[in-house]
């Protein structure tokens, strides 16, 4: 029961990732792509933790934690670059 519901939840999250990936590919401006990248980073972090639950290996939770950190720094660096301050 719980496994089925959680599989459906993960599938819906992947669908959200695909929709924001469409915006990432379509653009039309760099700032739109960066906003989409921000959303994709958060969803991917959550999906990595979900993968830890599916595979039963705890180490992937740490991978998700580090991915969240690096993704945040990446998005802020891109935003500062677009602003002209980097």
């Amino acid at each position: 029961m719980a496994e089925t519901v959680f599989s459906i939840a993960t599938a819906i999250a992947v669908l959200g990732l695909v929709l924001s990936g469409y915006r990432f590919l379509k653009g039309p401006w760099a700032i739109d792509r960066t906003v989409a990248l921000d959303v994709m980073t958060i969803i991917t972090t959550s999906l990595i933790v979900a993968f830890a639950l599916f595979s039963g290996r705890r180490i992937y939770v740490d991978v998700g934690l580090v991915y969240g950190l690096v993704g945040f720094v990446g998005v802020v660096a891109l935003a500062r670059y677009l602003e002209g301050g980097l």
Binding site: F6, L17, L19, V39
Partner: peptide
């Protein structure tokens, strides 16, 4: 988690 995933879909 299912409710959270629905909000992810909403953001997409």
């Amino acid at each position: 988690s299912l409710v959270g995933a629905l909000f992810f879909l909403l953001s997409g």
